[in-house]
């Protein structure tokens, strides 16, 4: 464990807490993409297959359970909660995310970390997470105004993977000494997808204006 990875995990956890807070306190999921939440449930389920077979630490087990639990809870709120589901902007959440699932699965079959079921699925989760934010970013571009909690959620979600990139650089020089192309390139793509969001988010924060993405 290093400071970059710990900061990354805490930022990721915070993003999920902010989203759960928004949904529970405002009883609304306006501006949130259900498709991105579905993709994240898939990312966690395919990445943490070794949850019961490989023990790393209490922290590792705990965080995996929290990530799976909270992402399923958010999915449930948006899909089935009688009040929250009314606030889901279904017509704006129009990204064809099934294409992302199929594309990433084919990519994982072609370029897996290793040709075993768990490693192909692990690679799938790495590829899928890199593009999982796309439905959410498309939805934000269509939303007229983005509320603070939603903006903070997306910002923290993007920031966590940027911290993971630092974690990988640190691990490269201190312990692994090998290039891990799949997570590194996926992580770079994932962080790059947030680039323009980061720009407008920081602008709105500096100018104390409402966050607005150009259509």
């Amino acid at each position: 464990m290093n400071v970059f990875r710990l900061a990354g995990d805490m930022t990721h956890l915070l993003s999920i807490v902010v989203l759960l807070l928004k949904i529970r306190t405002t009883k609304s999921c306006a501006g949130i993409s259900l498709k991105t939440q579905e993709l994240y449930v898939l990312v966690f389920l395919t990445r943490y297959l070794d949850l019961f077979t490989r023990y790393f630490s209490v922290y590792n087990v705990l965080m995996k359970l929290i990530f799976i639990g909270t992402s399923v809870a958010i999915f449930w709120y948006m899909r089935y909660h009688k009040v929250v589901k009314q606030t889901y902007s279904k017509d704006l959440d129009s990204f064809r995310h099934y294409h992302l699932i199929l594309g990433c699965f084919l990519m994982a079959l072609l370029i897996p970390f290793d040709f075993s079921v768990t490693e192909v699925l692990w690679t799938f989760s790495i590829y899928l997470e890199a593009v999982a934010i796309l439905p959410q970013l498309v939805l934000l571009q269509k939303s007229r105004n983005i509320d603070n909690l939603t903006g903070n959620y997306v910002f923290l979600l993007g920031a966590y993977r940027a911290l993971y990139l630092l974690n990988w650089i640190y691990r490269f020089f201190t312990e692994i000494h090998k290039i891990r192309w799949i997570p590194w390139i996926s992580g770079l793509v994932q962080t790059a997808l947030y680039a323009d969001f980061f720009y407008y988010y920081i602008q709105s924060w500096r100018k104390h204006e409402e966050l607005k993405l150009p259509a």
Partner: peptide
């Protein structure tokens, strides 16, 4: 098969 040394990450 090369060990996946990033498996201890989240």
């Amino acid at each position: 098969s090369t060990p996946n040394d990033l498996k201890d990450e989240l």
